[in-house]
């Protein structure tokens, strides 16, 4: 029996790493006595799989994880109640927004998710200047960037990964952009987008707002929210 959860990572807690998050979830599951399925072996671990790692320091209102429950003990577990039970067992800033039972053979988040939408505040530059940079980038045939990977310089064309980029306007600390960036064949980070737009463009903050699964011409989120506006109600209206 498998459950998928959607949750947030907002505020101070965004400075914890992906690994930190894994331990935090294990403790939360034990605190509410959720009957987890454990791996076999010398050091049994609960079977929890996380989706795309969120870079340390970034916020999100669209994080996901899949957790396997012990089929012998989980019969009485009401998946719908998990958000209300888990949120108090998690630190401030991590709220469970939705939960759903999942087919045991459902493909993993890592494989399924094809793109993410981000809100990025960057600096320096006016909204007008940014709009121009974005237009230029989107008009380009290719956007070749070099990055370091395992000590080697690798070149990549980012252009195919930029599914959409829009300038929303000035906010405190800089200009707010929203961008949908592909995660296949690899996840492009907000900082890479900024580097491709203009050298020296600094990322002030970044927040993942959606993860998307592109399937048979339709685009869906891994977990449909009952109240789709709920996570956005958490967002302070930032565009001035």
């Amino acid at each position: 029996m498998r459950a998928r959860l959607r949750y947030t990572k907002l505020g101070k807690i965004r400075f914890t790493s992906h690994r930190d998050l894994a331990r935090m979830w294990e403790r939360a599951f034990r605190r509410i006595n959720l009957p987890l399925a454990y791996s076999q072996g010398f050091s049994p671990r609960p079977k929890v799989s996380f989706g795309l790692a969120l870079p340390t320091g970034h916020e999100s209102v669209a994080e996901y994880l899949d957790v396997d429950l012990d089929p012998d003990k989980a019969a009485g577990t009401d998946i719908d109640l998990l958000p209300a039970r888990l949120t108090p067992a998690l630190p401030v800033g991590v709220d469970v927004l939705a939960a759903a039972a999942l087919d045991d053979h459902a493909p993993s988040l890592q494989h399924e998710v094809t793109s993410c939408t981000w809100e990025i505040v960057c600096h320096p530059g006016s909204a007008g200047e940014l709009t121009e940079l974005v237009a230029r980038a989107l008009a380009a045939e290719s956007l070749v960037v070099t990055r370091e990977r395992k000590g080697q310089e690798v070149t990549d064309d980012l252009r195919p990964a930029l599914l959409s980029v829009d300038v929303l306007g000035p906010v405190e600390g800089g200009v707010l952009l929203t961008a949908e960036l592909a995660t296949q064949p690899r996840g492009v980070r907000p900082a890479e987008l900024l580097r491709a737009l203009a050298p020296g463009l600094e990322e002030i903050s970044a927040r993942r707002t959606h993860q998307w699964i592109q399937r048979d011409g339709a685009r869906d989120e891994p977990l449909v929210l009952d109240a789709p506006d709920a996570p956005h109600a958490l967002l302070v209206e930032r565009v001035s």
Partner: peptide, 16 residues
């Protein structure tokens, strides 16, 4: 400052 240092979670508190 936290974007520029290793292990920024050292400085946030937030412990249970």
């Amino acid at each position: 400052l936290l974007a520029k240092v290793q292990k920024p979670a050292r400085y946030i508190g937030c412990e249970d």
